[in-house]
Structures are given as structure tokens and as C-alpha cells.
Nucleic acid binder design. Structure first.
Length: 257
DNA sequence: CTTGGCACATGGGATTCCAT
DNA sequence: ATGGAATCCCATGTGCCAAG
């Protein structure tokens, strides 16, 4: 296992999460498209996927509810309610939930139990169960999602990487997410790209940076984090090493006039 | 305050090898 | 074939400075 403090842990979603926006807006990014979660909207952030959730405050106010469904909980829930998991294979990281009349009441009912950002100990479990019951009532097909405990299956490396290269996670995680051991991942990666994972990732990110600066006139300081670089100075160093000019030089040449 | 340059230590990746 | 361990070593991140 890697260190707990992976630089950007929010990229990798380890458990299913229920996300509900009470006030303000939350921006969701799944590697492909950005979506906004408005007040009253909710979604499921799926386990073993990559995504970013970005809070946008309105009038300095944002209230949200985030509840995790860990595997242990889901298993005992399934046991208790004798549920079978039908096949349900949505593609997206974030699954938008339908509005359900019970949901707003449920969210309201949480308030008294909230202390320090967490649900009060013995009630948390019950409340979690209640939520899951509501969700399954509203969208029974979700059972196929929640009660699937399998590891990620072997998937196409090329498609997956092209979609997710912007996420700054370790090679090990990429391996896991494509359903392979580290060794197998590196072997297959070489097959697909004729390049080692690390080099390919950096190259891909630099190319994206070039595109963003040249075509979109983005400032280096705005984009380097999104692209998976950790410090600005290293970003511009790597950029220059590859393209022969610094990111700001490119911006000045293009954006300036 | 923002940006780029550079030296340096090291974490993590590449490669190789071994066990099953 | 596949997973894992060992080793090497380079790209990366850190920290600091300079320039504007």
C-alpha cells in the first residue's frame, strides 16, 4: 500500500458516495466532461472511479451532504433485506439521481444528528440504511451498482488512459483500475503505447498544457494543478525542457497579440 | 506577487529476475 | 503466463533565489 497522503486523494473514489447539494453548486469532473450539481440535486460518486468534486460557494454559503456506503455496510444491508444485484452497467463516474419526494425530507431529518460534520454515532447507521432504502425505492436498478463487490475487470488500457491521464494518481492505482497487477499493467502498457507509463503521462500532460495555453490562452498558474503537476516551477521547467520555451513565453507569443 | 531557473535529495518507476 | 521482489537510477518535487 502507498502512503495515506497521496497528493490528490480526491481523485480516486474508494467507496460509493452519496452526494447532495443543499445550497450553492458543486462541479463534477469525471475526466471527460464537467457537470454542475445544483441545489436539490444529488448523485452517486462511484467506487473505483476517478473524479473531482469542486465546491463553488455562493454568498459564501455551501451546504452539502456526503454519505459513504462502504462495502461492509452494503453487504450487511443486502443480507438483511435479501436483495439480489441485477446487472447495471452505467458508464459515468457520477450518476445523477432522480428527484424523489422523500429525499428533501430525509435531508432535513439529518440536521439534528449532525455534530462536527459527522452523524452522531448510533444514529449514523440507521440513517444510512434509511437513505439506501429511499434510493433503492426510487431507482431499484441501483442495486446492481451497490451490491457489486467485484474488482475492476480487465479493461482497455488505451481508452482508459486517454480518458484519465489528467488524474494525478500513482501508476499502481492506474493498474488497479484497469484490472491488472502492476507488472501486468506495465507490460500491457508497453504493448499499447510502446512507452513506459510515467513518460507517457508526463508527455500527455505537457501536450495538453501546450494546447490550453496556445488555443485557450490559459495562464500556467491556472492549469498546472489540473494537469497533475504539483509545483509551478517544476511545470515550467519540464515544459521548457520539452518544447524549448517556457509556458509564459508561449502565452506571451500567442495571447499577447 | 508572479514567474522562471537551478541544485540536490529521494520517491517512485523501469527493468530484470525469480517463483509459481 | 502472471505476480512479486530486488535493484538501479532518473525524473520529480522541494527549496531557494533572481528578475520583472
Amino acid at each position: 500500500m502507498k502512503k495515506a497522503k497521496d497528493i490528490s486523494p480526491e481523485h480516486f473514489i474508494a467507496e460509493h458516495f452519496f452526494v447532495y447539494t443543499i445550497k450553492g453548486t458543486m462541479n463534477l469532473f469525471d475526466g471527460n466532461e464537467h457537470r454542475a450539481l445544483q441545489a436539490g440535486d444529488s448523485c452517486i460518486a462511484r467506487k473505483n472511479r476517478l473524479g473531482r468534486i469542486h465546491n463553488v460557494r455562493e454568498n459564501d454559503e455551501l451546504e452539502k451532504v456526503i454519505i459513504a456506503f462502504d462495502e461492509k455496510f452494503l453487504q450487511s444491508f443486502q443480507e438483511k433485506h435479501k436483495l439480489r444485484a441485477a446487472k447495471f452497467k452505467p458508464v459515468n463516474t457520477f450518476i445523477q439521481l432522480k428527484q424523489h419526494p422523500l429525499l428533501p425530507y430525509y435531508i432535513d431529518s439529518l440536521q439534528p444528528y449532525y455534530k462536527h460534520g459527522n452523524l452522531l454515532a448510533p444514529f449514523g447507521e440507521v440513517k444510512r440504511e434509511e437513505l439506501l432504502l429511499i434510493l433503492l425505492k426510487s431507482q431499484p436498478e441501483l442495486a446492481g451498482l451497490f451490491f457489486d463487490y467485484g474488482m475492476p475487470g480487465k479493461i482497455n488500457i488505451e481508452a482508459f488512459m486517454s480518458r484519465n491521464y489528467q488524474f494525478n494518481i500513482s501508476i499502481e492505482r492506474f493498474a488497479f483500475l484497469t484490472g491488472r497487477s502492476l507488472s501486468a499493467f506495465k507490460r500491457d502498457f508497453k504493448q499499447a503505447f510502446n512507452e513506459s507509463p510515467g513518460r507517457w503521462l508526463v508527455l500527455k500532460r505537457l501536450q495538453e498544457a501546450y494546447f490550453l495555453i496556445e488555443k485557450k490562452h490559459k495562464k500556467p498558474s491556472e492549469i498546472y494543478l489540473d494537469l497533475g503537476f504539483e509545483t509551478l516551477s517544476h511545470f515550467s521547467y519540464a515544459f521548457k525542457a520539452h518544447f524549448g520555451l517556457t509556458p509564459t513565453a508561449l502565452l506571451a507569443r500567442r495571447g499577447g497579440q
